[in-house]
Design a protein around this nucleic acid. Structure first.
Lengths: 196, 196
DNA sequence: ATGTTACCGTAACGCCTGTTACGGATGGAG
DNA sequence: CTCCATCCGTAACAGGCGTTACGGTAACAT
């Protein structure tokens, strides 16, 4: 019992070490040795826990999706109106503090790594489709009288906008401060007629 | 005379080889040998043209900015109205065909590489500020009666949206077809009151 | 207490990396 | 034709990479 719990706990710790290296040193320095050092162990443990480097990265990518999904669902459940839920969910996807900024860097790192990794690109597509459907559902709930076409177009505009600004802010936080990002989000929601 | 011309022509060919490898094989396989093979030469030429790998990548990044800027300026000069210019400039920033899709992949690759490269991150920030100012200027021309605050917020929304959808479409072209991207752009421009 | 099993740190392997040094080829000058 | 400078392909180097094999250690069962 505790064996399997320890194993998965170690796998999670190693995946978080992957995030740490990816955020701090970039994809080019994301080596098994660097991950082991960040996790405070040796390469032996890493290679006993995962068959190879690719599996380690894939697990880290899946865990990232799992964690952000849990956070988004909590925000959605805690919102008092559909429009508040939509805003809260989009809000957490921007790079507003060091935590979310690093998440954006990690997300971009995995995206860049997916170019040469079929497992990562498949995971990326799966997660993006789930994310897109979620925002489409929230948009439809926030504007019940819209056509499906308008819901889809506006939802795509919203997820693209937040993802894009997260990328900009990840690389240049000073030029894209939180206030700019929030004003952008509220301006967009108002323009689409989705303001609270 | 022809010496320096040859040198810069070779530097450009090598930079285009960098784009090719970055788009086709990803950042992890972006080695000096891979670039030389894509350019049809040996590592000797590469290392005689650039002092080291970092300088090669920086030149390729600068050339990418130069090329896209020329294209954007041509579009802007050829537009009949300010709103047409704004739409055309934003339109070319999305991933609508194989050419622009690869550009988006390359852009993301350089962004991921910039995490561990001070020269690349500085270049990235400089280019993004130029790009943002351009779209702010075009937005102000398209909506002359807006406040500076609204211009800035809407311009940020527009560049973030197009950059974000380019990233999504770069990794999953089938899920984000050109029609979806264009409908998203026109829906957004109409919502902000910038439709032609 | 002892045997057994699972775990993981150590060390090594072969490969690939960026970079450097050398040496032949090439093309213009005298 | 000869000389010389320039260019760049070849080959080597040291170091870092992913991965594998071995061996000691700790924990559980008996």
């Amino acid at each position: 019992m505790s064996r399997t719990a320890d194993r998965s706990a170690q796998a999670e710790a190693l995946s978080r070490a992957v995030w740490s290296v990816l955020a701090g040193q970039g994809l080019e320095r994301l080596t098994v040795r660097a991950v082991a050092a960040a996790a405070g162990c040796t390469t032996g443990l890493v290679m006993h826990r995962f068959p190879n480097r690719q599996a380690l990265l894939l697990h880290a990518r899946q865990l990232l999706h799992q964690v952000t999904r849990a956070r988004v669902e909590a925000l959605e459940a805690g919102a008092v109106t559909p429009r508040a839920a939509l805003r809260a969910v989009l809000h957490q996807g921007m790079a507003l503090d060091e935590q979310t900024r690093q998440e954006a860097v990690v997300w971009l790192g995995f995206l860049a790594a997916a170019v040469a990794d079929d497992g990562l690109v498949a995971e990326h597509r799966r997660n993006n489709r789930v994310w897109r459907e979620r925002v489409e559902r929230l948009t439809a709930a926030a504007a019940p009288d819209w056509t499906a076409g308008r819901v889809a177009a506006v939802a795509l505009a919203l997820i693209s906008m937040t993802e894009g600004v997260a990328a900009y802010a990840a690389a240049d936080p000073a030029a894209f401060p939180p206030a700019d990002q929030e004003r952008m989000l509220d301006t967009a929601l108002a323009a689409y007629g989705l303001a609270e």
